[in-house]
């Protein structure tokens, strides 16, 4: 039993060391960006559709839709997506998406 425990500990240590040494150096984290799109959405159903889909796009961290102004504000991680990909995702839902602003936070 004692031998088994020693062997298990050794295995865990070796695995940990291997993982640690094999890990690539972490790239400096890019600040999040905020993009605002002008769209042709016109009602709360449109807002719900954009909300339920864009919230689950890769890299999206926050989302706000203004029905009156027909705008969609998205905060995203630029390492995972970009404003063009997000615009395409909005267009796939059947709406126009023109970038009004795209800035670092």
């Amino acid at each position: 039993m004692k031998r088994f425990l020693i062997a298990a500990m050794a295995f865990l240590c070796c695995t940990g060391i291997c993982f640690a040494s094999g890990k690539a150096p972490k790239a400096p984290k890019q600040p999040d960006r905020e993009v605002v799109y002008q769209t042709n959405l016109h009602c709360k159903s449109c807002a719900a559709k954009i909300q339920d889909n864009i919230a689950f796009e890769k890299g999206v961290k926050d989302l706000e839709i203004q029905v009156d102004e027909k705008t969609v504000r998205v905060v995203y991680n630029p390492a995972k997506t970009d404003s063009q990909k997000l615009a395409e995702a909005i267009r796939d839902l059947g709406y126009t998406a023109e970038i009004i602003s795209d800035k670092e936070l």
Partner: peptide, 12 residues
């Protein structure tokens, strides 16, 4: 008929 029908955040 909503609290504010014009602003939608991800939380409803």
């Amino acid at each position: 008929d909503t609290l504010s029908a014009s602003v939608f955040t991800a939380q409803r």
